[in-house]
Computed example of a mutant assay.
Amino acid sequence: MLSLLHHPNLMSLIGYCADGDRRLLVYEVMPFGSLEDHLFDLPPDKEPLDWNTRMTIAAGAAKGLEYLHDKAIPPVIYGDFKSSNILLDEGFHPKLSDFGLVKLGPVGDKSHVSTRVMGTYGYCAPEYAMMGHLTVKSDVYSFGVVFLELIMGQKAINSSRPHGEQNLVTWGSLQGHHPMRGLYQALAVASMCIQEQAVARPLIGDVVTALSYLANQAYDPNIASNYGNKGSGVDERGSKILRNEDAGGSGRSRAVVEAKMWGENWREKRWQSAQGSFDGSNGWLS
């Protein structure tokens, strides 16, 4: 099946070797390693990824999932979307790798694929972790977790943090250089992806549309006005995020909740309007 999947954001299978009971798959070389290598436990001499690069990686990874879900016939469920499975080419071009858990999507009147739970703890969607029900929306949930990792610079599960702050889905740390409005919008996209109910999550195509916009909005931390912000570079919604960030841990949690609420409002409007168009003035579907 891997030989039939071809997309710029999927690892290319070059060939394979078989010798007795030994099997070897040969993939292209990805010189920048995995996304995980550039997010967590960085050495002092290594610069963290800037905001623009993070959004570009997220958009590219989402396009890889979009190809599997919407372009492949039959649809393919990736099944193990996580930061260590996103490899980076020169220029931080992302490609999905490790297709050991891929499944063909449900066919006919079936709503899901039933399978033994084999994904990675912290990235698995609730319906998959609890019942073994796997759908393309399970991938969307996992994408949301990885997107939160990109935004926050925190691992999906970190047992070294205090109780209540170990799961990134329920707690976030907003830090680093970022545009306020872009941060708010990115959090909203992530919050939509990690909805507990699969039906409430967006299709990956909608995620690609939103992230393509964010990835194309170049951010310069040295310029006061970014993403349409004026004056201090912080709009009304961004000011609220900034105040919450300064307030400490509880403020960070409130910021995530506010982003979640705004994202839910956006999703409701999006679903109510089949004629929705991409509005560059505010960056969202009207």
Rank of each mutant, 00 (worst) to 15 (best):
L35D: 04
F147Y: 14
P44F: 13
M118I: 12
G79Q: 10
F92Y: 15
R116L: 11
P94I: 13
V146R: 02
L101H: 08
A61E: 05
K82G: 14
S34A: 12
G119L: 09
G164Q: 13
V117N: 05
H133V: 09
C124I: 15
L42H: 09
H163V: 11
R161W: 09
Y121S: 08
K46H: 14
G132L: 03
L25F: 06
T120A: 09
D70M: 07
M55V: 00
L65M: 08
V113M: 04
P44G: 12
P44M: 13
F40S: 02
I151T: 04
W51Y: 00
E47T: 15
Q154D: 10
L65W: 04
P43G: 13
L49K: 05
S138Y: 00
L24T: 11
A58H: 01
K110S: 13
M118W: 04
E149I: 02
L88A: 05
A61G: 10
S160L: 11
D70P: 06
K63H: 01
M131S: 11
K110N: 09
G119T: 06
L39M: 08
V146T: 03
G33I: 01
L104T: 15
S97R: 10
H112K: 11
G33T: 00
D50W: 01
F32D: 07
Y123G: 05
R54Q: 10
F40W: 12
M131F: 14
D37F: 05
F40T: 12
G64N: 13
S142R: 03
L42G: 01
T135A: 12
E66R: 08
K95I: 11
E66P: 03
P162G: 04
Y67V: 01
V136E: 12
L87R: 04
S138T: 01
Y128V: 08
G91A: 02
G122K: 03
T135F: 14
G144K: 01
P94N: 10
T56Y: 02
